[in-house]
Design a protein around this nucleic acid. Structure first.
Lengths: 326, 326
DNA sequence: CTGTTAGCGCTTTCAC
DNA sequence: GTGAAAGCGCTAACAG
């Protein structure tokens, strides 16, 4: 645990004062080219690294970006995180991830830890944060929500896809394929799911079809099995699942019960996550433009940092990716 | 962006000096019960939160734990991270995740960012960190490696499963099921994979069987297909894949080519990750005791923080979980 | 028990 | 151009 060199060390070794070193290191104006050159060389020789803590303490803004995510087990989320990260990196920010699980308290706790570290901003990839926490976070740093929040929160930006449109795309697709008994499947009352359900209901009504939602219980196995029984009993020929994870469950249980997909039952998911390609048959799913969403999140953050005061909410068009499952 | 209250604010409001506040807040000895009570109440009323940065700058230890992970897209890794997180939380540490991708430079960068934040320790869930980086990191804070590193690094602890044993378990299992032509499948030269291959070769030799490894190319689709063709041409009746991700690929391609698993080809994976249960047929896989590994990592860290100087390397026994795939 | 005093390493006026 | 000096918010001696 050798004591790390500080700017003072660099300064004495280079024969200048520490303020010069500070300036040179951040290539601020006011340092002679030769001096700067020498300072940088010495810093390098000494293996100097600036102390983030001290730096953060002094100036009000760091180069750290906090990303909060609730679940690591949904590939869609991790894919979004990766795209955010990529975009942030391009802006010279380094990402600190906090994993909040599906627990408002823990999530709030993590958000605060990040904020205490003086992050430049917070990108929230989770619909579990409660509005109060978000609002108070927004007073400390720009907060960008990727995906839907529980309820709209003033003062924070968001980037999202149009869930209602996406759901309508699914209905349209299935109807075009000749389906009329199309069940909607969900396990939760999360905001995105609700929006998809609304989209589904509207679209079904437009086609003069009966909408019916079935709710999965926590334990996926039993529930999906029960649901499949129900669905077939009700004459369903297609299922629109809230997301790929649940669509995958349906596929699995169809397999377990000898149902052929898509002949006995067509299955469509949402998110077009890595799971969709792993599934067999490959899963038809609604693609959220997640790369663009990551970029946009970074862009919105940049704007906030640049002083924008009014909220912005970007809504992107999803698109349906037809594959073998329905 | 109201200025956050500092201990000074709390002190003046409570009519005491700031050192008293500092002590009271960390319930250190030397503060009267009544005084402490009052200070805490005032702090609460003011919405005071201690400034991590200043705190970290002053004392040499924070309550932050850095966890570095290379890939978020392998469910096994995320599951390990979750168990580490759980164990750390029990120790009162809050986890900061850094995502390094499979890139030594970026990984090193992230590790340093974390270290710069004065984390109490670093838990590395990635075999991509280069030994030099690990070593220099270990000079700054305790480093615990979960899984195998590229090469053994002095000064860092590790917790791992016995990959060679795990591979032997697989071979034994397949042989017991009557297989003799058992191919080993891998896509990479990562340390864990190499150990598993060694275990496979040794076990095959012990059974008097011929060992042969086939290497997947980057693009999984093509490669697995080619491999399957090869494997069947060679009369393979079983495949032992380096991990679940690759086993899943094999399953997918078996499906694509109308091969029945396990009748035409038995498939066994490694990690017993979430993928194993999603797969159809469900994947036989080697279970790494990841919950225990997370706990152990936290435990080793605690010991280091407590002053242990000599390295410890924990190796846990994996176990085979037989399922439908072979 | 309580208060004063020095800094941690860095940035930032402000003189020279 | 360059350097001295004053803190950011907190903790850790040390006196009272």
């Amino acid at each position: 645990m050798a004591p790390r060199p500080t700017i003072i060390d660099v300064a004495t070794h280079a024969g200048v004062s520490k303020s010069l070193v500070s300036l040179a290191l951040r290539d601020a104006p006011g340092v002679g080219a030769a001096t700067r050159e020498r300072i940088l060389r010495v810093a390098d020789e000494l293996g100097y690294r600036s102390n983030t803590l001290a730096q953060g303490l002094r100036q009000r803004r760091s180069t750290l970006l906090g990303v909060v995510v609730s679940s690591l087990d949904n590939p869609y989320h991790t894919q979004v995180v990766e795209s955010v990260e990529q975009a942030a990196q391009a802006d010279g920010l380094s990402v600190l991830l906090a994993h909040g699980a599906r627990d408002q308290g823990r999530l709030a706790d993590r958000m605060n830890s990040l904020l205490d570290l003086n992050v430049a901003g917070l990108i929230v990839v989770s619909s579990w944060a409660d509005p109060g926490t978000l609002q108070s976070a927004a007073r400390r740093a720009p907060v960008i929500m990727v995906g839907r929040s529980l309820e709209p929160v003033a003062g924070i930006d968001s980037v999202n896809n149009d869930d209602e449109l996406g759901a309508a795309l699914v209905v349209r697709h299935l109807v075009a394929a000749g389906h009329e008994r199309i069940a909607h499947l969900t396990s939760s009352r999360r905001p995105a799911g609700l929006a998809r359900e609304r989209g589904y209901r509207t679209a079904m009504a437009e086609h003069g079809l009966e909408a019916y939602t079935r709710v999965l219980r926590r334990h996926p196995g039993e529930a999906a099995t029960g649901l499949l029984r129900e669905a077939t009993a009700e004459g369903s020929t297609a299922v629109f699942a809230r997301n790929d994870v649940e669509a995958f469950d349906v596929l699995d249980h169809a397999w377990d019960h000898g149902l052929d997909v898509p002949d006995d039952l067509a299955v469509v998911g949402y998110d077009d996550s890595a799971l969709a390609l792993r599934a067999r048959p490959r899963l038809t799913s609604v693609h959220q433009p997640r790369e663009r969403m990551g970029e946009l999140a970074a862009e919105l953050l940049r704007e906030r940092l640049g002083g924008r005061a009014e909220d912005r909410h970007e809504v992107l068009r999803p698109r349906l990716v037809p594959r073998a499952s329905g």
